[in-house]
């Protein structure tokens, strides 16, 4: 994984050679913890393949006694709007991401490479806003959207996140380290300031932008709080909101279908994580390691 040391393992490796028991002991502890960590995922998967009768017997079997195949998956997709939830999740997460990138990049560039009156004030506001979670402006935003008649829409679900101060902060760091001489060369070559930003500077920050994209998509795909407040209709629900509502209605009667749904809704991000671990970890932990 991204942050783990490679080179540093060697000095202790030398001493470990004398103590192979240390390695074995560590493996045993880690294996036990790994089993515990994976257990909920295992339960989720295995339950989605179990027959209902099995669930209510007082014994726990590691494998389903009677394999139900994709029954619950089909049931989940056909009887509940799971696919709609996912479509909404994609639309909302991508819509937010596009707006965040379009607004944050120019602002970050101005903060990183231009001197202007009010720059320090803007930067201070950005840093202040970094610490304010969505729950703080939620009430007035709700009232505002209600007054405009915009509640229960994609727009309502996205608009509070159109500005990401975190993106501004992150891109500013990245742009600041972009060499001034290349920007000057581009000016001499005749590029406009707008072209310099998008054609020259932004391509140099693709890793930071990609990491932010992972962070943003994960955050908004998983968000329950804001959709819970502004979304009412089933056809606009995001995966977490849909699942919460769906689980509520079913109220434990049909665990198989519930677990199948949970699996379907969790799978996309997990797949992305498995395929691009480095970038994913970098993106998700970006808030911590700067």
């Amino acid at each position: 994984m991204a942050a783990a040391p490679n080179h540093r393992a060697s000095p202790r490796r030398a001493s470990r050679r004398r103590l192979p028991w240390g390695q074995i002991g560590t493996h045993l502890v880690l294996l036990l913890l790994a089993v515990l960590f994976l257990f909920p995922f295992y339960v989720m998967l295995v339950t989605s393949f179990r027959s209902p009768s099995e669930l209510f017997t007082p014994e726990f079997h590691l494998l389903p006694q009677e394999f139900t195949g994709l029954k619950y998956y089909i049931e989940s997709i056909t009887t509940s709007p799971v696919l709609t939830f996912m479509k909404n999740g994609v639309i909302i997460a991508l819509g937010i991401l596009v707006m965040q990138i379009l607004t944050a990049i120019p602002c970050a560039y101005a903060l990183a490479k231009f001197e202007f009156r009010g720059r320090n004030l803007l930067l201070a506001l950005v840093i202040f806003a970094l610490t304010v979670p969505i729950q703080v402006p939620a009430l007035p935003l709700y009232l505002g959207l209600n007054a405009l008649g915009l509640l229960d829409s994609y727009f309502a679900a996205m608009v509070p996140f159109f500005l990401s101060v975190f993106a501004i902060f992150l891109f500013r760091q990245s742009f600041k380290s972009y060499p001034d001489e290349i920007i000057q060369a581009a000016r001499l070559d005749g590029l406009s300031e707008w072209a310099i930003l998008w054609r020259i500077v932004v391509p140099g920050s693709i890793p930071a932008i990609a990491a932010f994209a992972v962070f943003s998509i994960t955050t908004h795909w998983n968000d329950l709080y804001w959709p819970l407040i502004v979304i009412r209709s089933n056809e606009l629900m995001t995966p977490p909101l849909g699942l919460a509502t769906f689980a509520d209605v079913e109220s434990g009667e049909n665990y198989g279908a519930l677990m199948a749904t949970a699996t379907i809704l969790t799978a996309p991000l997990m797949l992305v994580f498995m395929l691009a671990q480095r970038q994913f970890v970098r993106g998700v932990t970006m808030t911590g390691v700067k």
Binding site: E181, I182, R187
Partner: peptide
């Protein structure tokens, strides 16, 4: 005149090539 209209070319210490 802005830089692009001065008809002047410049070679920089760091070469300033567009990396991408």
């Amino acid at each position: 005149l802005p830089p692009r209209e001065r008809d002047i070319a410049m070679v920089f210490q760091s070469y300033a090539l567009y990396p991408h």
